[in-house]
Simulated scan of single mutants.
Amino acid sequence: MNRRRVLDTGALRHWPLPTIDAGCDKESRGRVVLIAGSREIPGAALLAAQAALRAGAGKVLVATGESVAMHVAVAMPELRVVGLPETSLGGLDPSGLSQLDTALRRASAVLVGPGMQDEAAAIDLTQALRQRHPELPTILDAAAMGGATREPVAGHPVLLTPHAGEMAHLTGHDKGAVLDDAESAAREAARWWNAVVALKGATTVIADPLGETWVHENANPGLATAGSGDVLAGLMVGFAARGAPLLQAAAWGVAVHARAGDRLGAVGFLASELLAQVPALIGSLAPLDRGRFTPVEQTPSAAQAAPVRRSAG
């Protein structure tokens, strides 16, 4: 049965993120593995990685092309960076996935896709990842989304983040039809792919395979800028690493991302400028990040149940 809800401030306050204890360490805040970037778009990995840390994740490992790995590491000293072999088209060679097995076994969540080139290689890498680590909370963005939609893998749902054009590409439907009925498009895709789907736009629709649907309205054209989607995907994986289920990670990512844009105005800000807005916004939406790290109101529900946390190792 379809359940439609509006994702507004009241909904977020009654659906707080998992608590971060005042005495926590970086291991207990969650580890992110981020597979992203390419020779032409290394900045996508940086935007997503910083967003994950701003969202509260404790540690982030970035796996990117070996030709740009050192540049990414120097640009952001908070990261651990692994260089992977590249294809002739500038993508990440799926053979390099074995280099990440230890990190993936210890990870709390993984994000694949921002800034990746060579769609065929991205799909092969994603499918190999899902086969090797089907239990790992996984967010797929951009070119990596085809790895979940072409041959869905049994196991836990993944989170996909298409805009209307990407949804049309993935489903073979007309983009206009997707825009005309975004809610139906998102629900149908979520059921078919066994995935949480965040169909992005001025009206963003988030649906899970069981029919639960959240709708978020925000028509800020400033968010339609290069790198904005990388920031959004990074927020989602950061929230997932903290222990939020994928549906909640998607909802909070969409809401915080939109509100960060609203704080900066309309057209003219950069995607990187969204990042500094995130910590205060999280605190304003739910007081779990203010000193005691304890929500004022915590209403238990099935939607709040966090996935089993893996060993920090």
Rank of each mutant, 00 (worst) to 15 (best):
M1N: 09
M1V: 10
R4N: 08
L7N: 12
L17Y: 00
I20R: 13
D21V: 11
D21L: 10
E27K: 01
E27S: 08
S28Q: 12
G30Y: 00
L34T: 03
E40K: 06
A44W: 05
A49P: 00
Q50N: 10
L53G: 02
R54E: 05
A55D: 06
T64D: 09
E66S: 11
A75Q: 06
M76F: 04
P77V: 08
S88A: 14
G90Y: 08
G96N: 11
L97Q: 09
S98D: 13
L100K: 06
D101H: 14
A103M: 01
L104N: 02
A107M: 05
S108M: 02
L111F: 01
L111H: 02
L111W: 01
V112R: 02
V112S: 09
P114W: 00
M116E: 05
M116P: 02
Q117G: 05
Q117E: 13
A120G: 07
D124N: 12
L125D: 11
L129D: 15
Q131Y: 08
R132V: 14
P134L: 14
P137D: 13
T138C: 14
I139V: 15
D141W: 03
A142W: 04
A143L: 12
A144H: 10
V153K: 13
G155Y: 10
P157V: 12
L159E: 06
L159P: 07
L160Y: 05
P162E: 13
L170D: 12
L179E: 15
D181M: 07
A186M: 12
E188L: 14
W192H: 15
W193V: 15
L199A: 14
A202N: 10
I206G: 12
I206F: 04
A207F: 10
D208W: 01
G211T: 02
V215M: 12
E217P: 00
E217W: 09
E217G: 06
N218E: 13
A219E: 11
A219M: 07
N220T: 09
P221V: 12
P221Q: 12
L223D: 06
L223W: 01
L223T: 04
D230K: 04
G234V: 02
G234D: 04
L235W: 01
M236G: 03
M236L: 03
G238A: 03
G238V: 02
A240G: 03
L246D: 09
L246I: 10
A250R: 09
A250D: 06
A251Y: 04
W252K: 07
G253D: 04
G253P: 06
V256H: 01
R259C: 08
A260T: 05
R263Y: 03
G268E: 06
L275Y: 00
A276L: 11
Q277S: 07
L281Q: 10
P295D: 04
T299M: 01
A302Y: 11
Q304H: 10
